[in-house]
Write a protein that binds this DNA or RNA. Structure first.
Length: 282
DNA sequence: CAGTGGCCCTGAGCGC
DNA sequence: TGCGCTCAGGGCCACT
C-alpha cells in the first residue's frame, strides 16, 4: 500500500504532535516482519524526537535521557498493508494492531493486517540493524542534487526492465507499483524497456515524471486504494487521478478517447504493470 | 554476479 | 450464502 507519498503524508501527520512526548509504555501485538529487538520497557521515560523519512522508512528518534533508557530510535516500515495512527484517545487494540508507542501526548499505533511491516529498534540510523536495512536504498527523488545523469549511470549496462528497476529503488527510491506505472506513462516510456537502454534525455524526463507524480500524490494526501489513511484518519485522493494504474481495458486518457486504444496490464516480476502501448514507446 | 522467483501474511473480490 | 481461487500498495533472500 504505502509508497513514498503515503509514508511521507503519514510522517507529517504525527511528527509535530509526538515530538517531545515522553514514552509511557510500549505494547506489542503479533510478530511483524522483523522483531523489535528489545523488550520495549527500556524505552519508558525516554523522550521522542523528530520523525524523519528515508525511502519508505520512518525513523523516530528515542532520545537518551539520564537514567531512562538506551537512546536510539525506531525504524518503522508500513509494508503492504500497514498504517500508523496517532490519537490521544487510545481505543483498545484490535486484532491487527501490532505496535503501540504509548506516550504522554497520545498513542502511536501500527495497524497492519498482513504484517509485512516492521518496527525495529536501532541505536542509530547508521548502526545495525538500521544501517543494513537502509544500505541498498537509492537516492531520494526530491534530492536537488539528483539528476537524470545519475539515473543514466546507475542503469548503464543493466538489462532489467525499467519498471522493475524503478520498483527496486536502488537508483531512486519512493516509486512503488502505482507511481512507477504512472511515472512511466507520464514520461512516455515502455515499462518493458531494459533500463540500460534509456537514453540520457529520457532519464531526465523520467526523473521529472517521478517527481511530478510523487509531488502531486503528496499534495492530495497519497493514494487510498483500500484503506490508506494518514495518522489523523484522513484518506488520500490520488487514486482518482491515476492515468493507467488499475485501468486495464479502459480507454487511454491521452490517446484512447478518439482512437479506442485501451490501457493494458502485464505482469513483471509478479507485479502488475499498467501502460498504454501507444503513448509509451521503446 | 545480475537476474528471477519464492515467500512472509491476511482480506477482499469474484466466479461458480 | 458459501467455497475456493486469485490478487493486493514491499522487499529480503536463496537460488540459478
Amino acid at each position: 500500500m504505502p509508497e513514498l507519498p503515503e509514508v511521507e503524508v503519514t510522517r507529517q501527520s504525527f511528527a509535530d504532535r509526538i515530538e517531545g512526548a515522553r514514552v509511557v509504555d510500549v505494547r506489542l501485538g503479533k510478530p511483524l516482519r522483523w522483531p523489535l529487538g528489545i523488550d520495549g520497557s527500556e524505552l519508558v521515560g525516554s523522550k521522542v524526537g523528530s520523525a524523519t523519512r528515508r525511502g519508505k522508512y520512518i525513523w523516530l528518534p528515542i532520545l537518551s535521557e539520564p537514567g531512562s533508557g538506551p537512546g536510539g530510535g525506531l525504524l518503522l516500515h508500513l509494508g503492504m498493508s500497514g498504517s500508523l495512527s496517532f490519537s490521544s484517545a487510545s481505543a483498545s487494540p484490535g486484532v491487527h494492531d501490532h505496535f503501540d508507542l504509548i506516550t504522554s501526548r497520545g498513542v502511536l499505533r501500527l495497524t497492519d493486517p498482513r504484517r509485512f511491516g516492521a518496527v525495529v529498534w536501532s541505536p542509530a540510523l547508521d548502526r545495525e540493524p538500521a544501517a543494513k536495512l537502509l544500505a541498498g536504498l537509492g537516492r531520494e527523488p526530491f534530492d536537488p542534487e539528483l539528476t537524470g545523469a545519475d539515473l543514466h549511470a546507475a542503469w548503464r549496462g543493466k538489462r532489467v526492465a525499467i519498471k522493475q528497476a524503478l520498483l527496486a529503488g536502488d537508483a531512486v527510491v519512493g516509486a512503488g507499483n502505482i507511481y512507477a506505472c504512472e511515472a512511466l506513462f507520464l514520461a512516455g516510456i515502455d515499462p518493458r524497456l531494459p533500463c540500460g537502454k534509456l537514453s540520457r534525455p529520457r532519464c531526465d524526463r523520467l526523473l521529472d515524471a517521478v517527481r511530478t507524480v510523487l509531488r502531486r500524490a503528496l499534495e492530495v494526501g497519497g493514494t487510498s486504494l483500500r484503506n490508506f489513511k494518514d495518522a489523523h484518519g484522513d484518506p488520500g485522493a490520488f487514486q482518482f487521478e491515476a492515468k493507467v494504474y488499475g485501468r486495464e481495458g479502459q480507454p487511454c486518457t491521452t490517446c484512447g478517447v478518439a482512437s479506442g486504444v485501451l490501457v493494458r496490464r502485464i505482469v513483471q516480476g509478479q507485479r502488475s504493470t499498467f501502460f498504454c502501448s501507444v503513448c509509451q514507446r521503446r
